[in-house]
């Protein structure tokens, strides 16, 4: 089998707070994301899923275990090698209003990610903005994050991540800040990007239905441990672990509306 894009091996991480017992946020977790694969990491708040995401991105050092990105062990890299290596994975965060520097215009935000040597930065930036549906991209270059809508901000964040030509996108609750009616826009964009560029996704989410329909494979996390993993459709329709069953049952079911053919 080919080397996966990302391999997390026996990752553990605990947090100490003065006056409190240490919290084992992640406890001996292993997880792989194959090339072009979409994996959903599902869990409730405090399950350790976001901590694991930060460890995968190399933003947080695990107490033990290894993060292997394209065959390279992150911990064994020098600071400059790490900077180079981690470009292959890009994050998308929950709230683009905090994941974009409020003092920078779209042009500056894009320029931070674009290689200067390769032609005009404006042109490349505009093309990427067009690609994520902020069109015409040129009109958005001078805008600041607070001057565009929440959905558009998330697109801008995606465009910037794409500028790095990532092989893996780690998305931490990318839809929690978005209105229900525009979630589909963002999900469809992520699907298109995957088709065009063959990127892999690690999507960290608490939303069972999004995980079920977006991911190939799902890992369910509870109190720092992955309790169940497998094909998304299988795990989230007929779960075998009691916690997954509880989680799936707790989601209020919404029956499909009749005769809703006015939307494609």
């Amino acid at each position: 089998m080919a080397e996966p894009i990302l391999r997390l091996e026996n990752i553990s991480k605990s947090f100490r707070r003065p006056g409190h017992a240490p919290v084992q946020a992640v406890d001996n977790v292993s997880l792989e994301v194959g090339r072009g694969e979409t994996v959903a990491l599902v869990g409730e708040s405090g399950s350790g899923k976001s901590t694991l995401g930060r460890i995968a991105l190399g933003l947080l050092a695990p107490d033990s275990g290894r993060v292997v990105l394209e065959g390279k062990v992150l911990r064994e890299l020098s600071a400059s090698e790490l900077r180079q290596a981690r470009i292959a994975m890009q994050p998308i965060f929950q709230d683009a209003s905090s994941s974009l520097n409020p003092r920078r215009s779209a042009r500056e935000l894009m320029a931070q990610a674009l290689p200067e040597a390769k032609g005009s930065v404006d042109e490349q930036a505009a093309r990427l903005l067009d690609r994520v549906g902020l069109s015409p991209g040129r009109d958005y270059l001078a805008r600041f994050p607070h001057e565009i809508s929440g959905g558009q901000r998330q697109r801008l964040a995606i465009a910037r991540a794409l500028a790095m030509n990532p092989k893996l996108i780690i998305a931490d609750e990318p839809l929690s800040g978005a209105d229900v009616s525009i979630r589909g826009q963002v999900l469809n964009l992520l699907l298109d990007i995957k088709e065009e560029r063959g990127v892999a996704y690690l999507m960290i989410t608490h939303d069972i239905s999004i995980a079920r329909h977006f991911a190939d494979r799902v890992a369910v996390m509870q109190r720092g441990v992955i309790v169940e993993t497998g094909p998304a459709a299988q795990v989230l329709t007929s779960p075998s672990h009691p916690y997954t069953r509880e989680l799936v049952a707790a989601v209020p079911v919404l029956a499909a509306p009749e005769a809703a053919s006015i939307y494609r």
Partner: peptide, 26 residues
Amino acid sequence: QLEFVDAVRCLGKREWEILAAEVVPN
């Protein structure tokens, strides 16, 4: 600890660059 700092870190910027260009102005 704001997310945009981590986002820029993932673009491969150096720590002192992040401090000077992203953190201090804010």
